[in-house]
């Protein structure tokens, strides 16, 4: 499936060439074979994050303080890690863990 991934609040600095927006084609399967956020996070961790993964991931979820939106909706309303993704979804990650 095709997904648009956006990294903000400084998370882009953890990625190659510090690119904010990534157009990707993935099959983010979790253990049960469903395309969920859980599967996407592990894909992002192994395919996009180039440095300091601990700034992004803690355990099998995002680090607390990283906000996630699926199609501009707070992922806490969509099931969090269990939220199922569909083709052409836009997933945004924003870190709040910096000065300001």
């Amino acid at each position: 499936m095709h997904l648009t991934l956006e990294f903000g609040g400084g998370l882009d600095l953890l990625l190659e060439k510090s690119t904010k927006v990534h157009q990707v084609d993935v099959q983010p399967k979790d253990d049960e074979g469903k395309a969920t956020m859980k599967g996407l996070l592990s894909w992002v961790k192994s395919n996009l994050i180039k440095e300091r993964p601990e700034m992004f991931i803690k355990g099998d979820s995002v680090r607390p303080g990283v906000l996630v939106l699926i199609n501009d909706c707070d992922w806490e309303l969509c099931g969090g890690l269990d939220a199922e993704l569909e083709d052409k979804d836009v997933v945004v990650f924003i870190s709040t863990l910096h000065g300001g």
Binding site: C73, W75, L77
Partner: peptide, 14 residues
């Protein structure tokens, strides 16, 4: 988060 019973799809609630 696993306990959410409503449709998991984004933006489905009012």
């Amino acid at each position: 988060m696993q306990s959410i019973a409503a449709p998991a799809r984004a933006g489905s609630r009012l």
